[in-house]
């Protein structure tokens, strides 16, 4: 469990509004006959920072991957920004361009430079002029503190740098919601911090975030809600203080004792 104690997290901009960003109701998903997600009900308000925890195979990643349709759900409904996710390709592309996503293995495009990685989607999806897209990209690369790497290729960067580029690449699309799928799990300990710092900054600016992570320090300091999943269901959700200090469900207690115990 890594600490972020380099500085105090500034909570002044972190405001949760009444506006619903994501509404998931009675969502079910099967892989073949295996029931991975069971009756998921979740409402995310704009400005929320939600950390999703749980043992591996509990369906955390699958759930957030359903939100931008990298996985298809078979029953129930998902509304993102008031748009219902159905098999209509137009809706899917629209939602995907509004929802940013960072992956465990970064998934940068190795044949493009860092700058091209960041400008590709704005130019081809948003139809923004190249010059303007490059300015935006440099702005966000500065924000994640690697503007000097802009003309290198992803293979020349360290894991932590690559993940920060991946975050900048998502931000260039000016998303209203960010999804993080275990963004630090593939990183060395000293690189985890630089990525978490970037995520904290993003939270401080009021971004709506859903984050699958095992970084409980991040959950404690940044999240306004922690969701615990097991066996494809949401078992418990609460504010971080309550969640860590006073877990209710047996599974939660067991999980917390295992990951906080050492």
């Amino acid at each position: 469990m890594s600490e972020l104690a380099t500085r105090e997290v500034d909570r002044s901009q972190m405001k949760v509004s009444d506006e619903v960003a994501i509404q998931i109701s009675k969502m079910n998903k099967w892989y073949g006959t295996f029931h991975v997600l069971r009756d998921i009900d979740l409402t995310v308000y704009r400005g929320e920072r939600i950390v999703i925890a749980g043992p591996s195979g509990s369906g955390k990643s699958t759930m957030i991957r359903c939100i931008n349709r990298l996985e298809e759900h078979q029953a129930g409904s998902i509304m993102v920004d008031g748009i219902e996710l159905s098999s209509d390709l137009k809706n899917i592309d629209k939602i995907r361009s509004e929802v940013g996503m960072c992956f465990q293995h970064f998934n940068l495009f190795p044949h493009l430079t860092i700058l091209e990685n960041c400008t590709l989607a704005p130019i081809w999806v948003r139809k923004i002029p190249k010059k303007q897209a490059e300015e935006t990209a440099m702005h966000f690369l500065e924000k994640v503190k690697i503007p000097e790497q802009a003309n290198k290729y992803p293979g020349q960067l360290s894991g932590g740098q690559q993940q920060r580029v991946a975050i900048a690449r998502s931000l260039c699309m000016k998303p209203r919601i960010m999804l993080f799928d275990e963004p630090t799990s593939a990183l060395d300990p000293e690189m985890i911090k630089e990525v978490l710092d970037t995520m904290v900054e993003l939270a401080e600016e009021g971004m709506t975030m859903l984050c699958v992570t095992h970084e409980m320090g991040f959950a404690r300091q940044v999240a306004n809600r922690v969701i615990f999943m097991d066996a494809g269901q949401i078992v418990e959700q609460n504010e971080p203080e309550e969640f860590f200090n006073n877990p209710q469900h047996e599974r939660t207690k067991l999980f917390l004792s295992q990951i906080l115990g050492h």
Binding site: L108, F109, V125
Partner: peptide
């Protein structure tokens, strides 16, 4: 992951093939 990253950025099928998948 390359297919997924292209999808997640909102590129449609032909754009993701042309810009991301086929060059590699």
């Amino acid at each position: 992951g390359q297919y997924e990253a292209a999808d997640a950025l909102g590129l449609d099928y032909w754009k993701s093939m042309r810009l991301i998948i086929l060059p590699q």
